[in-house]
């Protein structure tokens, strides 16, 4: 997770580098540390350092880290020639390295020669069956080929061993959602909530899944998870506010005719719609009419 201060620092550094203010290496280090994906910039500034032999040699042993970073960024930008050059330099320097082997496999993957890449990855896994990066690359590769169920299988196998890896759970949840397998996705989001209970996005996604699943019980639960998202974000999350409104209206429809047990729910809903209205007034007053129309169709009061 990248915090807000880190992001502003990164953006400031990026604009500084873009405008020729120097600090390219610091920028690249920060990108690496935060593990953010800014491949275009990394490629541009990294190459600028690598092409200048004086700057390059002043890095000392960090030079090779930069080669690796630029190679990955180049693959991401489909500048395969650059990537190939970088990998070749590394290959010459570290002929036996597994890390370079991984890069070579990734290069094959970027070229789209899936078969060869798969072969390379499996031989890497034979050497070290606990290389998490290689496992993840394989999943990504299968996913890139459009074989989502294959990706699910691989991820499940991976999670059997590395069951504390929440990024993998998140990926699995998103794949399940894209296949409309909501129950499985809900399980994954529960797992994510367990590992990081203070991240509002997971609560929100879980609530979305529950709402999509439908049924009175799930709707009630979904509403609770929208509430926790509101609490954690201080009411700044528009999606959660809409979620409260939708849930309330759906619950009201389902429990029509039955005796009403939920007494305090209209309160929360009216508060949510009031908050939405206020926000729309402030930021997008031209869309306010659309909002009131939406409220009308939902049959909720504001």
């Amino acid at each position: 997770m990248v915090t807000k201060t880190e992001e502003t620092q990164l953006n400031r550094l990026e604009s500084q580098v873009d405008n020729g203010g120097g600090g390219a290496w610091e920028y690249l280090c920060l990108v690496r540390k935060l593990k953010v994906r800014r491949s275009v910039k990394v490629l541009k500034h990294g190459l600028w350092i690598l092409n200048d032999s004086k700057k390059r040699s002043s890095l000392g042993p960090e030079e090779w880290t930069l080669y690796e970073q630029v190679a990955v960024a180049a693959m991401d930008c489909q500048s395969l020639d650059v990537a190939k050059d970088c990998v070749n330099v590394l290959q010459k320097k570290f002929p036996e390295s597994k890390r370079v082997g991984r890069l070579e496999a990734m290069l094959l993957e970027a070229k789209g020669s899936w078969g060869e890449a798969e072969k390379a990855y499996s031989s890497l896994l034979e050497d070290n069956p606990f290389d998490q990066v290689v496992h993840k690359r394989r999943v990504a590769m299968v996913k890139a080929q459009g074989n989502l169920s294959g990706a699910i299988d691989l991820l499940n196998k991976y999670l059997e061993t590395f069951m504390a890896d929440h990024d993998a759970w998140r990926e699995l949840a998103e794949i399940y959602i894209s296949l409309q397998m909501y129950k499985q996705a809900a399980f994954c989001y529960e797992e994510l909530i367990l590992s990081q209970p203070a991240v509002p996005l997971y609560h929100l996604a879980y609530a979305d899944v529950l709402y999509t699943l439908g049924g009175i019980e799930n709707l009630l639960t979904a509403k609770k998870y929208y509430s926790i998202t509101i609490d954690l974000t201080g009411g700044k999350n528009t999606r959660a506010l809409f979620g409260i409104c939708l849930c309330t209206s759906a619950i009201a429809q389902l429990s029509k005719g039955r005796n009403k047990e939920d007494k305090d729910s209209p309160d929360l809903q009216s508060l949510a719609s009031a908050a939405l209205e206020k926000e729309y007034k402030q930021r997008a007053s031209d869309k306010l009419s659309a909002l009131t129309l939406a409220f009308k169709t939902l049959k909720v009061s504001s």
Partner: peptide
Amino acid sequence: ALPKFEQRAEAALKKLI
């Protein structure tokens, strides 16, 4: 813990409005 959060969300929204 979630039922508690409905009240807390209400409080947060009241503060926001």
